[in-house]
Design a binder for these strands. Structure first.
Ligand SMILES: [Mn+2]
Ligand SMILES: [Mn+2]
Ligand SMILES: [Zn+2]
Ligand SMILES: [Zn+2]
Lengths: 141, 141
DNA sequence: ATTGCAAGTGCAATGCATTCGCATTTATAA
DNA sequence: TTATAAATGCGAATGCATTGCACTTGCAAT
C-alpha cells in the first residue's frame, strides 16, 4: 500500500514534465492518501469529496498518463475494472479476499526467483508478471 | 493445451445435463480441436468456417454455460478479452509472449506449493489463483 | 412416432467501462 | 504578458459482453 514514499506524486509528475493543474493536484493528493486499490469511479468519488466538478474523463486520462510514466500501477482483478495504486518502491503481489473483496499485499522472493528460473528454462525473460491469489479466511485458527 | 483428454466435451456436456444442439456440437468440436486460447470472436470465426449462421451471442452463452459447469476455463490476459480453453486435466499457468501474443503453458509444483505456504502464513486458504508471466525470447542463446 | 415443454437460439437492444472529438480553458516557458 | 501546447468538460462513440423476447428444438415421457 502507499506506506511512506520518498517523493510525492506531485513532485514526481513535475520531474516527468506533467503539468500540475488544479484537477491533477487533487487527483494526486487522493492517490497519495490511498492505501488501497481504488478504481476510477472510486477515485472520482474521493476527488469529488474534496473538489466537486472534476470530470470523470479527466480522472481516466490522468490515470492513463500516470501509468504511461510509470508513476502508478494498474491492476485488473476478477471484476474486470481497472484499479490503481501509486508505483510501489518494492514490487509486491496480491491476495484478493473473495468474500470481502479486500486486497492484501504480499511479497515472496522465493516465488519471484522461481518465476525467473522457469522463464529462463523456457528461453524467456520476464517483462512483467501478474500473481493474484484469490483467498478466503481459514476456518478454525 | 488440449492434448489428449479422456472424454470429449460433448460427452461431458451430456453428463452435465446440457442439451446438444447443432450449434453446440460445432462449438464443442471447435473447442476440442483448439490447442490455444481463443476469444469468443475467434471461436465464432472457427465455428462459422464449419457451419455458417451460428450467432455470436450463442457462442457467448455457450461459453458461460460451459464455464459455470467447470467444463472450460476462462482467462483474461492483458488485452482484456475473455479467452477460453477446455478444462485441463492438470492445472497450469501461462507465459504470454509480449512480442507475438503467443500463450505458452507451464507448470511449477514449487511455485504452487509456495503459494499455498504463503497463503497459510497469512491465515488464508487459496480459492483460485492467476499467474501470468509476460515474457520475450532471450537474445543470444 | 408423437407430444409437451424447458432449454436453446437469433436478433436487436442494452449495459457498462473506457475512450475520443472538439470547443474551451489553463499551465508554463519565453 | 503572451504564445502555445497540454489539459479539461462534456457528450458521443466504442468495444466487449449480456439480455429480453419471440421463435425453435432437443429430448424425456407417453
Ligand atoms: Mn498493491
Ligand atoms: Mn492454458
Ligand atoms: Zn510478483
Ligand atoms: Zn498455478
Amino acid at each position: 500500500m502507499s506506506s511512506s514514499r520518498q517523493e510525492s506524486l506531485i513532485d514526481r509528475c513535475k520531474h516527468h514534465g506533467l503539468r500540475i493543474t488544479g484537477q491533477r493536484r487533487v487527483i494526486l493528493e487522493v492517490l497519495d492518501a490511498s492505501d488501497d486499490h481504488p478504481d476510477v469511479e472510486e477515485l472520482h468519488r474521493r476527488v469529488s469529496a474534496i473538489e466537486p466538478g472534476v470530470n470523470i474523463a479527466t480522472v481516466y486520462r490522468t490515470m492513463n498518463k500516470l501509468a504511461e510514466q510509470g508513476l502508478i500501477e494498474r491492476h485488473q482483478f476478477d471484476d474486470g475494472r481497472l484499479r490503481y495504486e501509486p508505483a510501489p518502491e518494492e514490487h509486491h503481489d496480491h491476495f484478493i479476499n473473495v468474500e470481502t473483496g479486500e486486497v492484501i499485499e504480499f511479497r515472496s522472493d522465493e516465488i519471484e526467483d522461481l518465476q525467473e528460473e522457469i522463464a529462463r528454462k523456457y528461453g524467456f525473460e520476464i517483462v512483467s508478471h501478474k500473481l493474484e491469489l484469490y483467498v478466503r479466511r481459514r476456518k478454525g485458527h
